[in-house]
Design a protein around this nucleic acid. Structure first.
Lengths: 226, 226
DNA sequence: CGCATTTGTTACATTTCCGTGAAATGTCGG
DNA sequence: CCGACATTTCACGGAAATGTAACAAATGCG
């Protein structure tokens, strides 16, 4: 399974560092935002979980959560609130907004890690997870990590599989190289965007007759067209 | 018969100690969790019985029971509620969630032990349960922890048995090493993921002709394919 | 304790992946 | 048809993933 990506949103820089360090030790891929505004620009829909401070500068965590939950792209991203207040009101208001859990400051790191694990597991369990996606005779079983062409098994590598899954799942959408790097390669790894071209070439060759459905939009990127 | 494993979930540490001590004296294998969250991380599906306090910190016992009952892996684990409240309403709500019994605080140890024995007896009687899983000539008796190949008994170690059971029960699904560590090794134990490779190798050798059904998906993990 | 068994670690061989540079080819506006 | 730029394709080799044996540590048992 790919690393879970977690977004930590808190205006206390030192606290962010502690959280980031510990979560990364646990094997998560962690980004940090110091305000709700900043967080909203960081593609929150790409994260598996958002750790959100309730008390922040301009925009409160609650307001941000409301925004997230009102947008279909981000509505399903689990949110854990961190809060110094513990009045019944806040808690209830937060949970009603779809917070999946909340932690009251001051909290121990172990506590946070436990909550994170628990929420991620719950989220994973409730995800029916499209078992398969397909386009005509080209079928991908995401749980088996298996791709078949007219019933015949194709030997796709991990990168090829992920690229194809991305393109077919979002057929019609053109992905820039930058976007694809962001989604399929982890952010730490630095690779040239030429790399994608090469992988696309290999992929096209392997899926044979369907290769022509992977289209190139000159200057933009790649997509899958019917 | 192997010792019954009981999970005690209560935030009162001293009470936990008393329960644990007495249950262990009775011959049970007892683990303790001080919160619902913690309990959920302790592989509740591995226990024969869960003793659950209704009134706890973040997540109430009721909420936890609902989670347990909604997950197919844990739905059949008997739950006994311990509660200080004794209004008719709570009791009914709890029992509807699938609680197999409930005890009102303050309670005597003798009373608890009696309920535990009774629930375990009832559970054992009505436990036809998935006793065996099989793939062609490869059969696994989950209760006896016995694996046979074309009728001949195989000497699998515990880890090998658990891995094989996981893979065959979910044949087709590819499990990442991370996932397997989580499911088969407890979270506290820190083990390299290479350990899994070695166990897979040993397993493949032992199940002989069926070894080739354990497939490796490079970069993803292992699975059992027909 | 001493032995047998299980289980985790390490090291190394082998396989497979996949990023890179460079050359070939394609595209597009003029 | 040219030139500038973008994409395709190829071949190479380092990096990463896996298989396996041998060793070490932990565990269980009489």
């Amino acid at each position: 399974m790919a690393k879970h990506k977690i977004l930590v949103v808190d205006d206390e820089e030192s606290l962010c560092e502690i959280l980031q360090f510990n979560l990364e030790v646990e094997g998560y891929d962690v980004d940090v935002a110091y305000s709700a505004e900043q967080a909203l620009e960081m593609h929150p829909e790409r994260y598996s979980l958002i750790l959100l401070d309730v008390m922040m500068g301009e925009m409160s965590g609650f307001k941000m959560a409301r925004l997230l939950k009102s947008n279909s792209e981000t509505a399903l991203v689990p949110v854990i609130f961190c809060t110094a207040r513990d009045s019944e009101d806040d808690t209830v208001a937060g949970l009603n907004l779809g917070a999946d859990d909340y932690i009251t400051k001051p909290f121990s790191i172990r506590e946070v890690l436990a909550r994170v694990r628990s929420v991620l597991r719950r989220a994973a369990a409730s995800e029916p997870e499209h078992e398969t996606i397909a386009f005509e005779g080209l079928e991908m079983d995401l749980r088996r990590k298996l791709c078949t062409l007219d019933g015949k098994e194709l030997a796709l590598t991990k990168k090829e599989f992920e690229i194809l899954a991305l393109l077919i799942a979002h057929r019609g959408v053109i992905f820039s190289r930058e976007e694809m790097l962001h989604r399929i390669w982890s952010d730490e790894v630095i690779v040239l965007d030429r790399t994608i071209d090469v992988n696309i070439t290999r992929l096209r060759r392997k899926i044979g007759p369907y290769g022509k459905h992977i289209v190139t939009r000159l200057g933009y990127g790649y997509g899958f067209e019917e």
